[in-house]
């Protein structure tokens, strides 16, 4: 199983290259490129392709490869105010993903504030169906797949269930949207949303309901109070349950860490040490699978 790490977009290409290099030298096999705030996505088309191909070539020179990307996510209010503009930005992110050599693009579903616990499931589904269908022609043209991520709605300290928090709702979306849609299981989000009445939001149930539909992961730990994005074992997730779920679903994708906040605590000249630690955490997890 390949070990992956997140690399974040930046206005400064050297910063991106640093993250690529740190990840490669720590030992990671693959990378998850996070488009962050959408930097560079408004470049003219040819320049956009050139920019991201340059990053791909740099990564390959460091003997690491982009396996997946994470599209920029916007508030629902942004979507309402800039709907068409965001669709175009997301399409540009698909082009960029293709230029990076990726196959999988992780995207958040739309998360209206009214989609809270069990509220407004059908209305939210219709909104998301319309949203995601905008991308299907381009997915087919570029031979890409969208992996919808399980998320939460943050409400005054509560990480409440919302669109696609559960495996059941994710499965509904994926089945309705068609063969270009799969799932990304985010470990920290599962842990935060799981609660009495929502015991189905668990690694074991994700494995049971989604199984082979899970093509990508976001792996990180937390204390169930904040979305900390710490390395595995630095929170209180039951990693044995997670490991078992991967075995149950016969997961074949990459084990990709999403621990940016941990890395950001380190001094600039000590970043390599942070990546080295992340790699060891991921390696330990992989050895138990």
């Amino acid at each position: 199983m390949k070990l992956g790490n997140r690399v974040k977009n930046s206005y400064n290409i050297d910063v991106i290259k640093d993250e690529i290099r740190y990840s490669a030298r720590a030992g990671f096999d693959v990378l998850d490129f996070s488009f962050n705030k959408g930097q560079h996505l408004n470049l003219p088309h040819d320049e956009l392709l050139f920019f991201f191909k340059e990053l791909k070539d740099y990564a390959n020179k460091e003997e690491v490869y982009f396996e997946q990307t994470h599209n920029t996510y916007y508030s629902y209010e942004d979507h309402l105010n800039r709907y068409d503009e965001i669709i175009e930005e997301q399409k540009n992110a698909l082009f960029a993903s293709w230029a990076l050599g990726c196959k999988y693009v992780v995207m958040h579903p739309l998360k209206p504030l009214f989609r809270y616990y069990e509220e407004e499931k059908e209305k939210t589904f219709k909104l998301n169906e319309e949203y995601f269908r905008h991308f299907i022609p381009l997915l087919e043209e570029l031979d890409l797949y969208i992996c919808i991520e399980n998320i939460y709605l943050y409400d005054k300290g509560d990480f409440a269930p919302t669109t696609c928090s559960s495996a059941e709702e994710l499965k509904l979306y994926i089945d309705e949207l068609g063969p270009r849609f799969y799932a990304c299981m985010d470990t920290g989000h599962v842990h935060l949303v799981n609660r009495p009445g929502y015991e189905n939001i668990s690694f074991s149930n994700f494995a049971k309901v989604l199984g082979k539909d899970i093509l990508t992961l976001h792996v990180h730990d937390c204390d169930k109070k904040k979305d900390l994005h710490y390395p595995p074992y630095m929170g209180n997730i039951d990693w044995e349950e997670f490991i078992q779920s991967l075995k149950d679903m016969k997961y074949e994708g990459a084990l990709t860490l999403e621990c940016g906040p941990f890395v950001s605590m380190f001094k600039d000249d000590k970043k390599q040490e942070a990546y080295d630690m992340l790699y060891l955490s991921a390696k330990r997890l992989r050895e138990r699978i």
Partner: peptide, 24 residues
């Protein structure tokens, strides 16, 4: 050694990171 490599304003968070590990 972990927090030695962190900016001072993050050292408390760094301690929280390995507090979680030792609590396990």
């Amino acid at each position: 050694i972990l927090i030695k490599q962190m900016y001072p304003e993050f050292m408390e968070m760094g301690k929280e990171v390995y507090y979680a590990a030792v609590k396990r």
